[in-house]
Design a protein around this nucleic acid. Sequence first.
DNA 1: CCCGGTCTTGTAAGCGCTTACATCACGCAT
DNA 2: ATGCGTGATGTAAGCGCTTACAAGACCGGG
Lengths: 334, 334
Amino acid sequence: MAKTPTLEDVATRAGVSTATVSRCLNQPDVVVEETRARVMEAVEALGYAPNFSARALVAKRTQTIGAVIPTMENAIFAEGIQAFQDVLQAERYMLLVASSGYDPAAEAEAVRTLIARGADGILLIGLDRDPAVYDLLATQSVPAVVAWAFASGGPVPSVGFDNAASMRALVAQGVRLGHKRVAMISGRTEGNDRARARVEGATAALRAAGLPDLVVEEADYATGAAADALDRLLDRVPDVTLVVCGNDVLAAGAMQRAHALGLSVPGQLSVTGFDDLGLARLVQPALTTVRVPHKTMGEAAARALLAAVDGQATESLLLPTELCLRDSLAAPKS
Amino acid sequence: MAKTPTLEDVATRAGVSTATVSRCLNQPDVVVEETRARVMEAVEALGYAPNFSARALVAKRTQTIGAVIPTMENAIFAEGIQAFQDVLQAERYMLLVASSGYDPAAEAEAVRTLIARGADGILLIGLDRDPAVYDLLATQSVPAVVAWAFASGGPVPSVGFDNAASMRALVAQGVRLGHKRVAMISGRTEGNDRARARVEGATAALRAAGLPDLVVEEADYATGAAADALDRLLDRVPDVTLVVCGNDVLAAGAMQRAHALGLSVPGQLSVTGFDDLGLARLVQPALTTVRVPHKTMGEAAARALLAAVDGQATESLLLPTELCLRDSLAAPKS
DNA sequence: CCCGGTCTTGTAAGCGCTTACATCACGCAT
DNA sequence: ATGCGTGATGTAAGCGCTTACAAGACCGGG
């Protein structure tokens, strides 16, 4: 194994000092053309690549951003994270990922690890977490931004959308169409402010319309779980005409079970989703849902975080969502 | 901002040398109980956390694994990567991700960056790439493993499945059911050995059965693109009875277009996918496809890579796939 | 022809950590 | 008593890089 060449090797070969080589790489303009050419030739010849650890040690900058994601399996995060990563890559930063599996303790631990590794900034998902995490971030002065949720004036800036208002608008649309008995299949709400906000939004819409309270069943992020939740809901609210779901995956599962039970959608039962995954258009009938600007959000979060790393003040950013009215929601029959 | 405490701060507070503190942290057993207690107390009090860059600089180990993924948006990678990452995290390694967007040059660049950052090992997707990448890996002696494809005896070990054989088995099943005119919607094959292998597998199955050659249309990884590809295929092969697709997303797109054209599936046209994403069960009719053990593969790849980092010899691992016979494939009408 | 300014390059001091080696204290065999 | 092995701790040399500061080269103006 050929030992990796060091700055010194390059310097020797080019007949200059290590300082000059370093300058060629970092501030080319201060080095005179001829010298630079000689150095660059040596760099090429040796296949030199700077050692990041050494550089980070003195520069106190790792060019690394950390992200703690519940899980990458979830398509909801995958797209946004990809966009986030694209921006980072373009700015010569790298992404260090950790996943929490929706466990607050694991998340806190991951943040600690990321800080110890010298992450220049950290991306967090959602607002729900141990305040100690924010304290840690503050005392270590590691900038962070929260995405997938929005709250102005929180401990760290957020880039996201209003989960509650979006769901409220969707349910209000259902109410406008004449639905009176509405139920919801929600994702797990414990430690998940996004899921909770969606439930709250739906509740608020019903309350504002003076309709009976929302009946909620929680389900794991899986179509099978959603299908079973639909059974329980049908049991508890036999006259339900609209089932709103916390996300598209749950909606797809619920719709599938509805079909299996011989219930036509939207004829006998309307079903809605949230997120507007590709999935939403592929199921029959196409899902009425809420479109979330995942890509925009990921990019904006990256920009915000990079700005913060750069020492610039960062504002929270509220992104708009959009109702996607498709076929799974229609006026109730009766 | 409170400057992060260093080893020296801890040493001073505990009244010992930095060497002793370092030993307490790395080889606690060589330090006498009483001293260790004093040191640990100081560590706690100061909230000390070792500086990774400094440690990496001297230890020449970063406890970091790099992965170059075409894109995380693709559900196919998301699940496997998550499993990969879970194993890493359990072994106290972190994952540094880069994406190539299916561009070989970008991939090579990413590998270079990852090496410069001192990644202890690198995960690569698929076999297709500039041989220079393997050379680089070899000269820098950075272990790597390839996943999502399989080739024994390649430059680096692989953990994956046989794309060609799997597709061949699927098409053979179609042939068995009586299909004679078969066409394929493939993902882009340029620089993508997985896509190419799937085409080859389908071709081989037809040839073995003495049937007319496979007609292929390529499409980007999107349902709309697949739908358009179906149009072209129908144009080229009006009497086609089975359209096999390179993956489930393409299949879903093709099926959707078939419905829009008034073609019943599988009545007038059979359609198959590949990967068995959750999607496959949600579309109508449920997709006949090939199940790929993404999770197992991700985990196995992580174990193999970690073993290689540890200096152990690593064998390639071929994982089995499984035909998922569902409703979108049936015997042709005529 | 000398002086000071400008521009380029070299010198060397760390950054925080690990680790080979030196040192020291102790206790036991001789 | 002397010497030596043993185990605990300290000393100090880097790891590869950046960067303040010093040094030298060269220029034009007085």
